[in-house]
């Protein structure tokens, strides 16, 4: 399958990329890893008139800790997360997700920024970043601004980036003592999207859960937090009954659609199970 025709630009600087975006408006798409965009173009689901390839811009690929945050450059490849000692040793939720995104070949090209900017509720990073309470940095003609992840995803494949903005960085708060996270995904085979997956970040103090954030993958039209499930945990000792209640809350508040991966009822119940399992794993890591 051959994509439609398009003009291709490969700017060397971010400023050049932004001015190309300003010039071409909604005709233009940013090409990062291309692992979602190029298949969509080959199916003619996406027909951008202009591609702005940001792979040749220096300084958009990095992982470093600064001022209590992990900074992830937008063009950081998924495989770099798997190979990063910082991620593997301190950011367990992110490390869990990095191992199950698509397949190893795709991860060699796919980028963290692209995964988030694509804003597909079936992608793994949206739920992960919702659970972390991450911040997205966006650069446009008027400078750089920060967007809280809770305000980022607005609709199916839609987000709060302006037409002339580029996602440049993701900031994850460094987990405090007593904080643990996990990501668990059920997929039919390596490379498929999740049937359901849960991202959980918990803070425990003396056996009580003092903070909880839970993100869900592929069980809603917009990437979502399971806020009722979070509330079921906060202030509680995490007994089997409390964890079950959180699982049931997530099953009730998610909004899956029936497809070849299963019925709505199946996906809700699976979400209950995935949330419970992920809470237990996050708890182990918090202690």
């Amino acid at each position: 399958m051959i994509p439609g025709e398009f003009d291709y630009h490969s700017p060397q600087t971010l400023a050049e990329a932004i001015s190309l975006l300003v010039e071409h408006g909604d005709e233009a798409k940013i090409l990062a890893g291309g692992q979602s965009l190029i298949p969509a173009m080959r199916f003619r689901l996406a027909l951008p008139g202009t591609l702005i390839d940001i792979n040749r811009i220096d300084g958009l690929s990095y992982l470093r800790e600064e001022n209590g945050h992990l900074l992830i450059g937008a063009m950081t490849r998924e495989s770099a997360l798997e190979e990063s000692d910082i991620v593997q040793s301190k950011y367990h939720l992110l490390a869990d997700a990095a191992a199950v995104i698509a397949d190893p070949l795709v991860r060699n090209l796919a980028t963290v920024g692209g995964n988030i900017a694509h804003s597909d509720p079936a992608n793994d990073h949206p739920a992960v970043m919702l659970a972390y309470g991450a911040t997205v940095m966006a650069a446009g003609p008027n400078g750089t601004r920060r967007i809280a992840i809770d305000d980022f995803f607005t609709d199916l494949f839609e987000n709060s980036l302006e037409e002339n903005e580029i996602l440049t960085e993701i900031r994850i708060p460094t987990p405090a003592a007593g904080t643990g996270g996990a990501y668990l995904k059920l997929e039919r085979k390596v490379g498929d999207y999740a049937i359901s997956a849960a991202a959980v970040q918990l803070t425990m103090s003396g056996g009580t859960c003092t903070a909880a954030r839970i993100g869900l993958t592929n069980v809603s039209p917009v990437p979502m937090r399971a806020k009722n499930a979070e509330q079921a945990l906060v202030g509680q000792t995490l007994t089997d009954d409390v964890i079950e209640a959180a699982g049931q809350a997530a099953a009730a508040e998610c909004d899956p659609s029936q497809d070849l991966r299963g019925s709505v009822a199946y996906k809700r119940d699976l979400t209950r199970v995935m949330v419970k399992r992920t809470i237990r794993k996050a708890m182990e890591r918090a202690n």
Partner: peptide
């Protein structure tokens, strides 16, 4: 690095 050459221009 191993990549899928059908998913790159």
């Amino acid at each position: 690095r191993a990549v899928k050459s059908c998913t790159m221009f």
